[in-house]
Simulated scan of single mutants.
Amino acid sequence: MAGSCCAPSRGGDSAAIASLAPETGIQDDIQAGAGAGVHLRDCVAIPGGTALLGTNRPEIPADFEAPQIKRRVKDFWCERGATSVAQFRRFVQATGYVTLAERLGWSFVFHTHVPEENADALGVMGLEWWRRIDGATWDRPQGPHGAPARDEMPVTHIAWEDARQFAAWAGGRLPREVEWEHAARGGLGDVIYPWGDQDPNDQDFTPCNIWQGDFPMTDLALDGYHGTAPVHSFAPNGYGLHNMSGNVWEWTAEPFRVRSASSAGRQINQASVGKKLLKGGSFLCHKSYCYRYRIAARTGNTPDSTSAHTGFRVVYDKAPDPAPSTASGCCCK
């Protein structure tokens, strides 16, 4: 087991990758759009046009955040928050889906959230603050000795294929990187964060759920949360989207690769074959450790990796049904 500075990795083990396919018997229920009448959308319209991707003010050169380029995107619709536990539970109840973490029997939990009964759990070499916890899953994020997952929280311990299957069932998909950044900017243009350019700090400005204090031992939780926050917490950006910075890493549709033909870029892409791209950072990010809660920041991980700070958000190519109403459970605007 290894990982980047941001997330632990199962390492792309061949046995784990082979387990990514949905179990026989429920494939018909997970076909594209099968849950469109069951999943309760809570989304907003994102206007298309010229979108910015990357930055000319890079902070982590090794991630090739620069240069900033322009791309055209079409109109799309994006969930206001990351997929919640309640939304994912509806998917599981409708299809019988079993996540990869459940099939493999374990997932990664941050050390300060590990129940006392698991105090001797195996750590990750080089990332000792992560622990392998048997039985940690989307509905028991700390393992069987921890509390059940709360409905309003982002669903975590989600592998890339789990996220893709939910999105297809819901009639949507995972976003492309340019779509994710376009949505995160909220109409503000070339900004560092969804709210603008002001940096969060450890004193009096906490607009998102990240780490405050001395990582990895002391989390002051000045933003109100020691772990994940509800999917609709903190002020939304200009498009009405919550937690595009911090809270949980979000899987995207794309492989992790850098936009560079340099020798270093080619080496990174060769070493990253098979990895998928994640955006947004998490509640464990801090400027001194993992300054990846900026819009242009990015990381990659093997698609079989699951952890307590990794989830996803769904986008849609089609508008919701005409005249949606909150009574029907659809809140798209």
Rank of each mutant, 00 (worst) to 15 (best):
L277K: 09
A94C: 09
T302D: 15
L20H: 13
G187S: 04
L52D: 03
V314W: 04
L278M: 14
C208M: 11
T310G: 06
Y293C: 13
G213N: 06
P230N: 06
G12R: 08
A147K: 15
G105D: 09
P8F: 09
R89V: 06
A221Y: 10
R292I: 11
C43I: 00
D199E: 14
W251R: 01
V231T: 15
L284I: 14
D151M: 02
R80C: 12
S19Y: 04
R80T: 15
W129E: 14
P230K: 04
A147S: 09
R10H: 14
A170E: 03
F312R: 03
T299E: 06
E23W: 03
A101Q: 05
R90S: 15
K74R: 12
L188G: 02
V124M: 04
A264V: 08
K287W: 14
V155C: 13
A253Q: 14
D204Q: 02
E250W: 11
A136H: 03
Y193R: 08
V73W: 02
S305F: 10
G329T: 10
N301R: 01
D75M: 03
A18N: 08
G49P: 07
I17Q: 11
G240F: 12
A235N: 08
P22T: 05
A170W: 01
D28C: 09
D197T: 12
V114K: 04
Y293G: 01
Q165N: 13
G3Q: 05
T24F: 04
E250I: 03
V155H: 11
I69Y: 03
A18F: 00
S260D: 13
L241N: 09
I268F: 02
G171W: 01
G37E: 02
G96Q: 06
P22K: 08
A21G: 12
R185E: 04
R185I: 02
G35A: 00
A86G: 08
S263I: 12
G186R: 00
L104T: 14
P47D: 07
L220G: 00
F64M: 13
L220V: 00
G186A: 00
F166A: 10
D42S: 13
